[in-house]
Write a protein that binds this DNA or RNA. Structure first.
Length: 740
DNA sequence: ATTTGTTCTTGTCGG
DNA sequence: AAGAACAAAT
């Protein structure tokens, strides 16, 4: 084995090697984009296990997504033959669930607790607003929730917030909502995402024995993407590493992009102060991108004032210039990129090498349309997600209730799904009864006969539901996960209901439910003795990236936030317009603009070889077409990018402020812009569809029977009136399209 | 009176 | 696309 020892250090640069060999005491690895941090961490773990005799079970590694965790495991496994499944690797949330499942009863919760996602939170908040008779036009659920989230992160209790803001009506009301929200969560035996970490920290702090158990267990703690941790996550990591003090955090302050959800860039900036005897190692050599790409990224991020000086460098080949293209309409962005992709594929790039990155999910649609038209296979990460589909959420809600009958939010979702004739009036009567008798909603259902306010018809509608649920609860105990879910779906008649509809939409819903069943089957296959609890938790804690399959050769469409930590040979960063990127919500604060700039930095540094940035002069979004200004970031890039030939004199010669006002004046809702018309104008003879009539020099009139992509060109199969079937290449064939 | 069907509004980033 | 407000149907 002696000869292999050096393997852990082979191919590492000096700085990386230092990081691997530093095994005692707090360590911060300031890892610039593409500087090989995952490599360092995996080699370090391998080194610890193989050379320092550390048990895999003594290692805790916190990653940003579950996918990152499993990749890390795989990579350690490639280096050494160790039982990597014994390591605790996962997101903050999944690690915390694991801890809570064991001991949450000490905090007065049941171990079968439910995890509330964003939608559940909103429903719960609606319930609170209604119950306190608050003017709902004044308090938006999402706004109240984000305030509550930041209060929770700062460990401010509802009562103290109310007292501190007693004279401020609005703040006091938010405090009251906060108090009720917390009360209900507890009553429903549910935890929101923030709670998962907060309650774990509380559990550890209040129970010395549990804290000591984990402190002894974890001899080495790793935290990836440290720049995006919040206060409570910091506390959690600090607690767990409290005994051995071997905490290794990895991050890049230039890539801190989650400030809006409480991430505290101060965690990484103050690491040296926070942890005594700590060491900092800087990784500045970039292995990912060409100098041309790095120049652009460095140039942009250099405009951030609040920043630790750092400069990425590389010794890679120069590469191609970064190209900036401005289109006339947002719809043309899609066409332009589709065309470029055809060229890139002709050059030998694979679809999976290519990513389109945007600021908001809403932008994905134009690319979907173009790619479908051009027959370019793609996948979308995030956006309208499988797990957000109504039918999938319904099925999950059933499972949540069966696992935790106290989960009122889910019960109310499913009690009339599929339709059973149970309406709002019936539900509120049951709820009244429950409150009156100090019971849970489900408890009230069990004593349905005693609810006098309900008439016979209502009771008849509700009682089959209860019977079904009771039977299912019993079956849950004796059946396997996948079989049970199938049994559940068939006994509630969900699919039958959809079949009756007999629409395309209903059919896709059925498909989605079947897909969900296979997700369960898959989970069961991977995890022996998979419980419903485990399955539900894992489903709740999947990130957008976790939810997409990566086996296929597809173009990736996603937000820049989702792209964090990923890399692609070819990257298109789109929609570089003031108000879109940077987002209009950030325009007024320097701090927010700096975060947008870091986001831009993240986007640019995803690219390895080819990078395009685009924007449009007019953008249609949410049904309105507006004139736009190029993003300030483009100007900041200066001459590091290649701009298209300057077209005419542009109106942007005025100062930015003046132009902004102009934009407002010129905003035209419903410009009546028709993308179909534009296509004719731009694409001319490029656009061919099945059924189009064409005229050929030699064979005369024919009808297009087939269109097939062929290395950036199109191969047409045309049925000619005289001459039969011919296969022709669009670019060279002497044909003229004469109508559709 | 209650439920079901239809139109209208809304819309960063996400575990 | 989905929820809310409103209208129609039982």
């Amino acid at each position: 084995m002696d000869g292999e020892r050096m393997d852990y250090l082979e191919g590492l640069n000096d700085r990386q090697r230092d990081a691997v060999l530093h095994t005692e005491g707090p360590l911060l690895i300031m890892a610039g984009a593409g500087s090989g941090k995952t490599r360092v961490v995996t080699h370090k773990i391998a080194y610890l296990i193989e050379e320092k005799g550390v048990y895999p079970s003594s290692i805790l590694a916190i990653t940003f997504t579950n996918k990152a965790a499993s990749e890390m495991k795989d990579r350690v496994k490639e280096l050494i033959d160790a039982d990597v499944d014994k390591m605790w690797m996962g997101t903050f949330h999944s690690i915390c669930v694991r801890i809570l499942r064991r001991d949450i009863d000490r905090l007065g919760y049941d171990r079968s607790f439910t995890i509330y996602d964003r939608d559940d939170q909103i429903t719960l908040m609606k319930e609170c607003i209604k119950e306190l008779n608050i003017d709902k036009t004044m308090y938006k659920e999402s706004a109240v929730l984000s305030k509550i989230s930041s209060l929770k992160d700062a460990s401010i209790e509802p009562d103290s917030y109310i007292n501190e803001n007693y004279s401020e009506f609005r703040e006091r009301t938010i405090g009251e909502l906060y108090a009720l929200y917390e009360k209900k969560l507890k009553k429903y035996n549910a935890l929101d995402f923030d709670d998962l970490i907060i309650k774990t920290v509380v559990l550890l702090k209040e129970n010395k024995d549990i804290l000591e158990f984990y402190q002894n267990k974890f001899k080495h703690v790793f935290v990836d993407e440290y720049q995006d941790t919040n206060k409570i996550q910091y506390e959690f990591a600090r607690l767990l590493s409290g005994k051995h003090e071997n905490i290794c955090v990895v991050g890049d302050s230039d890539q801190s992009i989650y400030g809006w959800r409480g991430a505290d860039i101060g965690n990484i900036l103050n690491f040296e102060k926070d942890f005594e005897n700590s060491t900092v190692i800087l990784l500045e050599q970039n292995y990912r991108s060409t100098p041309n790409i790095l120049n652009v990224a460095n140039k942009v991020i250099g405009n951030n004032f609040e920043r630790q000086a750092k400069n990425l460098w590389t010794n890679r080949e120069e590469g191609e210039k970064v190209v900036y293209e401005q289109l006339d309409y947002s719809e043309e962005e899609g066409h332009f990129i589709a065309n470029k992709i055809h060229q890139l594929i002709y050059k030998g790039y694979k679809l999976k090498d290519i990513a389109v990155l945007y600021r908001t999910n809403a932008q994905s649609r134009t690319f979907e349309e173009s790619f479908m038209k051009e027959e370019l296979p793609y996948k979308i990460v995030g956006g309208l997600r499988f797990y957000d589909r109504k039918e999938v959420k319904d099925v999950i809600a059933y499972l949540k209730v069966l696992q935790n009958p106290n989960d009122n939010i889910s019960i109310k979702r499913i009690i009339n799904t599929p339709r059973r004739g149970v309406g709002l009036a019936t539900i509120s009567k049951i709820e009244e009864y429950a409150i009156e008798h100090g019971e849970s909603f489900y408890g009230a259902l069990l004593s349905l006969d005693e609810i006098d306010s309900l008439n016979a018809r209502a009771k008849n509608s509700v009682s089959p539901f209860i019977d079904t649920m009771n039977v299912l609860m019993a079956k849950k105990e004796v059946m396997g996960l996948k079989d049970f879910i199938e049994e559940m779906i068939s006994s509630i008649g969900y699919i039958e209901e959809l079949k009756k509809e007999d629409t395309i939409e209903a059919r896709t819903r059925i498909e989605n439910i079947k897909e969900f069943i296979s997700v369960a089957l898959n989970f069961e296959n991977i995890n022996e003795d998979a419980t419903l609890e485990d399955f539900l938790a894992s489903v709740s804690l999947l990130s957008d990236v976790d939810k997409t399959v990566d086996e296929n050769n597809l173009i990736t469409l996603m937000t820049i936030h989702s792209a964090k930590g990923l890399e692609f040979k070819v990257v298109f960063v789109v929609g570089l317009e003031e108000g879109l990127f940077p987002s209009f919500r950030s325009l007024e604060s320097d701090e927010d603009i700096e975060e947008e700039r870091r986001l831009m930095y993240v986007a640019l540094t995803r690219a390895e070889e080819v990078l395009f940035i685009t924007n449009a002069k007019r953008r249609t979004i949410y049904g309105n077409t507006n004139y736009t200004l190029p993003s300030r970031f483009i100007e900041e890039m200066g001459d590091t990018i290649e701009k298209p030939e300057v077209k005419k004199a542009n109106i942007q010669s005025k100062s930015a402020d003046e132009s902004l006002i102009r934009i407002k004046d010129f905003t035209m809702p419903n410009l009546n812009y028709n993308p179909a018309m534009m296509k004719k104008r731009n694409d001319g003879d490029k656009e061919v569809n099945i059924g189009d009539k064409v005229k050929h020099k030699k064979w005369g009139i024919g009808t297009v029977a087939m269109v097939k992509e062929r290395e950036g060109d199109k191969e047409l199969t045309i049925a000619f009136d005289k001459g039969g079937l011919k296969r022709l290449l669009l670019s060279i064939a002497p044909i003229e399209i004469i109508g559709g």
